[in-house]
């Protein structure tokens, strides 16, 4: 998103122009990531980034490309099994941090007798159910309300690529092209490549496909988009180049 008067760049501790804070008659103001309410009536940013306000939902947050993932509830993440204990798995969301836990019964149709057996190093796609700063995060691979997997569970085959947290977030947006400005995956699909992806909010993207070449092309497209901070037009050029190189 462009930096302008409505979406200014903020630094930690800056004062926020009161005219930018959304007001709504009924809904309470919701503060998203990167903002902190200091009672009675001060709101200060805690990270450097772009201040975004949504007047319809009466919410505001700071958009930033952080380097470190901090779990928060309902995030979809890709984790790596570290080891299994009596009734849960220890899962790493980011290397060199304390691991999250995943109950062995939190899979679709799992009972005490039929639980999935995952080796250390296996990848899973999961949702964060519990996260606070004093405890390790908890994960689940099944929807609590429907009892269905809904796409979550072990990821077999394929390859996991590391991307920045900002790109992972943009990829996960419902309208990633309009809001996030990432189009590479759609473009690659449009060129006739068959692949499936799972995007983890913790900065990992899993790509699966029958053909190794396709996976490598998708991985390179994601990496180059991320590192070069490419716009939509440049992403088109990149995809054309990658497709040409594949043939």
């Amino acid at each position: 998103m462009e930096v302008d008067q409505q979406h200014p760049l903020v630094l930690p501790g800056d004062t926020i122009d009161p005219s930018l804070i959304p007001t709504h008659k009924k809904q309470p103001l919701r503060l998203g990531p990167g903002l902190r309410h200091i009672p009675p009536n001060a709101i200060i940013p805690t990270v450097a980034g772009q201040l975004i306000a949504d007047h319809k939902k009466n919410s505001m947050w700071v958009e930033y490309n952080g380097g470190r993932y901090i779990p928060s509830p309902n995030d979809l993440v890709i984790g790596q099994i570290v080891r299994s204990a009596a009734d849960l798995y220890y899962v790493n969301l980011t290397p060199y941090t304390s691991s999250a836990t995943l109950p062995q019964l939190a899979f679709e149709g799992a009972t005490k007798k039929t639980r999935p057996i995952l080796a250390p190093g296996a990848l899973i796609y999961a949702r964060v159910t519990l996260a606070n700063r004093h405890m390790d995060a908890e994960l689940e691979c099944v929807s609590g309300s429907t009892g269905k997997a809904e796409g979550l569970g072990p990821l077999t085959g394929g390859m996991a690529f590391d991307v920045s947290l900002g790109l992972a977030r943009r990829l996960l947006m419902a309208r990633s092209r309009e809001e996030g400005g990432v189009e590479v995956l759609e473009l690659l699909g449009g060129e006739g490549l068959a692949f499936e992806t799972a995007v983890g909010r913790n900065g990992r993207v899993w790509v699966g496909s029958e053909s190794t070449k396709t996976v490598i092309a998708v991985g390179r497209a994601l990496r180059e988009t991320d590192e070069g901070d490419l716009g939509v037009e440049q992403q088109r050029k990149l995809v054309k180049r990658l497709i040409r190189e594949m043939r």
Partner: peptide, 28 residues
């Protein structure tokens, strides 16, 4: 002492499988 982060099984397998097909992750 923190141990070096191990790559996941998927990554291990994929890198080796790609090498069998003479492909590298960065297409070199």
């Amino acid at each position: 002492m923190p141990r070096e982060a191990e790559p996941s099984l998927n990554e291990r397998q994929f890198v080796l499988q790609a090498l069998q097909e003479n492909l590298r992750l960065d297409s070199r």
